[in-house]
Design a protein around this nucleic acid. Structure first.
Length: 592
DNA sequence: TGCGGCTATTG
DNA sequence: CACAATAGCCGCAG
């Protein structure tokens, strides 16, 4: 009689062979239908038979809670589709973006980065070269690394998933990268929190995969009601849609004696039309038109047209059809950090949905939302990262601008403009005067911003408080600019100033993003005990759906998590961070 | 067909 | 109308 191996036995055996322990690094790759590759410093292992590989990963995660080393969020996405959600990870792509900046973080690039190999020497992913193959023995073909130190392109492009053994090797390579990244982070001695940030940026990738999979609850009937009020009922055909467009256009043309026939979607034609009516404008932006609304009734009609047109094209029925599934969830792609300062991004309108639609974001039956948003996060973050003691003292007020206004001897609105102007780089207009007061009162914080501004102007890379590199290599975009035209002195100065504004803002916005993600992953971890899940991240705001019975507990927990995250991110504790936390059934019920 | 400009939405 | 993002349509170059 042969004893049948239970999943439990398999897990124990695997854990024992690998030496899995709580918080220990374990390389993990998943090749669906092939194998799960696992690797530790002790051994590598491929699980291709026996119990379901995903089940084994789940068991290992729950029993030992290692820090899984992944190549990217794709691993988490694959596992989530199998019903497995990891607790924590070290995502080498996320850490690469932190260390090197920018967004590209494919395995070939990440490997080269940690090994100090030039990016422009990356082997091309063209067809295999027969001559080079002839010199390789079988062992080398099975090795993921070339003699010159780069990863083999065929492995990178999917070859890693060809066999069970290769998945184990690929997991091992990820572990090697993580180790190199750890060394690089340790070398950033003036960024003591970068290790903690690397871990939260990694786990944010797990959160992103979950957000993409789960989606945001959006009530279809409520959403279509809103649409109907703005642009009318769902068109039954293309002809119907065209008739609707013509009807909306006609409502604008009706205000023009004699009638016209222009394309309202063309700013140039609209500008010309207003010109014929005696209204001269440099452009047709809404704020400019709104100021001229008294001049002619067509302006108000046109602004209403713009609003409806916007909804019809971007947030109309097509938007719902494309992104809102039958289960009432609006789904988009999520990235843990953008290419600039490192904020999370989302597509499908999740980050820029018009506020009107928030009434359609309704908690599902038996659930409520806990909505929490950070108050005045950017000035508080500036106080922390610059270590300005006076500015930090101001953060102890619920409204930070009140003590700042007192110190500067100005009203609150002026104080706010001055602070925001300093962080965004505004140097002209109303903010300029208050700026001098700010420099006198909070010299450390202002010096921090101005140092960032100077570095950025000079084209020197920046690094945020948490260690994210802000590349300034070829800043401001405008690559090359075809032709012989050389930019004038004014234009060059303008571009340098833009780089300066970008740089000073990136240091604040980037640091705020680090704290926010640390908060988010802390909430994610703690809220799981209440069956609560984050359904939306919005730069300084979390929306969490939880069973009704746990609403109050989760609301309290979210506040605790902010304190915990703040202590982990900035252990000094001199800055107070605040959040407005409410338990609601519709997103729109939150007080704004 | 691709891309810069314009416009609008969000934080 | 500063800083960031996504996203659509227009107009123009190739």
């Amino acid at each position: 009689m042969t004893p049948v191996a239970t999943p439990n036995d398999a897990v124990t055996a695997a854990a024992s062979r690998l030496g899995v322990e709580r918080g220990g690094l374990v390389g993990l790759v998943v090749a669906p239908g092939v194998a799960v590759g696992l690797a530790t410093g002790r051994e590598r292992l491929a699980i291709a038979v026996g119990c379901a590989p995903e089940e084994l990963v789940r068991e290992l995660d729950e029993r030992f809670r290692p820090r899984w080393v992944t190549w990217s969020g794709d691993t988490a996405a694959t596992l989530i589709r199998s019903g497995v959600r990891l607790a924590t990870c070290w995502d080498v792509a996320a850490v690469h973006r932190l260390l090197f900046g920018g967004w590209k973080a494919d395995p070939a690039r990440v490997w080269a980065g940690t090994h100090g190999l030039p990016i422009d020497g990356l082997p091309s992913d063209g067809p295999p070269n027969l001559f080079s193959h002839r010199d390789l023995d079988a062992g080398e073909l099975e090795a993921p690394v070339r003699h010159d130190g780069y990863l083999r392109p065929d492995w990178v492009q999917g070859g890693w998933a060809a066999t069970a053994e290769r998945t184990a090797r690929w997991a091992e390579q990820a572990l090697v990268v993580a180790s190199g990244q750890g060394a690089k982070l340790a070398a950033l001695r003036d960024r003591p929190r970068c290790g903690a940030v690397a871990r939260s940026e990694s786990t944010a990738e797990l959160l992103c995969a979950e957000l993409a999979h789960d989606g945001l609850p959006l009530d279809r009937a409520a959403a279509e009601q809103i649409l109907g009020d703005l642009i009318g009922p769902r068109p039954a055909s293309e002809a119907d849609a065209a008739a609707g467009r013509a009807r909306r256009d006609a409502a604008v043309f009706a205000h023009i004696p004699g009638g016209v026939d222009i394309d309202l979607r063309s700013p140039g034609q609209v500008k010309a039309l207003f010109g014929r009516l005696g209204i001269d404008l440099p452009d047709t932006r809404a704020w400019r038109l709104r100021a001229m609304a008294d001049e002619h009734p067509v302006i108000a009609a046109f602004l209403a047209w713009r609003k409806a047109e916007r909804v019809a094209t971007t947030y109309g029925y097509g938007w719902l059809d494309e992104h809102l599934a039958d289960d009432g969830r609006l789904r988009g792609d999520w990235t843990g950090c953008d290419g600039a300062a490192g904020r999370m991004t989302a597509s499908a309108g999740l980050h820029n949905m018009p506020a009107d639609f928030r009434t359609a974001v309704i908690a599902e039956p038996g659930h409520v939302f806990v909505r929490a948003d950070l108050g005045q996060i950017e000035p508080r973050v500036l106080a922390a990262v610059s270590a300005d003691k006076s500015f930090a003292a101001a953060s102890h007020a619920d409204d930070m601008y009140a003590p700042v206004a007192d110190e500067l001897g100005v009203d609150r609105a002026t104080a706010k403009v001055a602070v925001l102007g300093a962080m965004y780089g505004q140097t002209t207009g109303h903010g300029a005067n208050a700026m001098r007061g700010l420099r006198a009162t909070y010299p450390v914080a202002v010096a921090y911003l101005e140092a960032a501004d100077r570095s950025a102007r000079a084209g020197q890379d920046l690094r945020t408080y948490g260690g994210r590199r802000i590349p300034m290599g070829s800043p401001g975009g405008l690559p090359g600019v075809g032709g012989e035209r050389r930019p004038g002195e004014r234009e060059l100065a303008g571009r340098a100033a833009a780089r300066g504004r970008y740089g000073r803002n990136a240091m604040v916005q980037g640091a705020a993003a680090e704290l926010f993600k640390m908060w988010a992953v802390t909430v994610r971890a703690r809220a799981a005990a209440y069956d609560a899940r984050i359904v939306l991240c919005l730069h300084d705001e979390l929306l969490i759906q939880t069973p009704v019975a746990h609403g109050d507990a989760v609301a309290a927990l979210v506040g605790d998590c902010l304190g915990e995250a703040a202590r982990r991110w900035a252990p000094d504790g001199s800055v107070r961070f605040v959040a407005d936390i409410v338990t609601i059934s519709r997103w729109s019920d939150a007080k704004g």
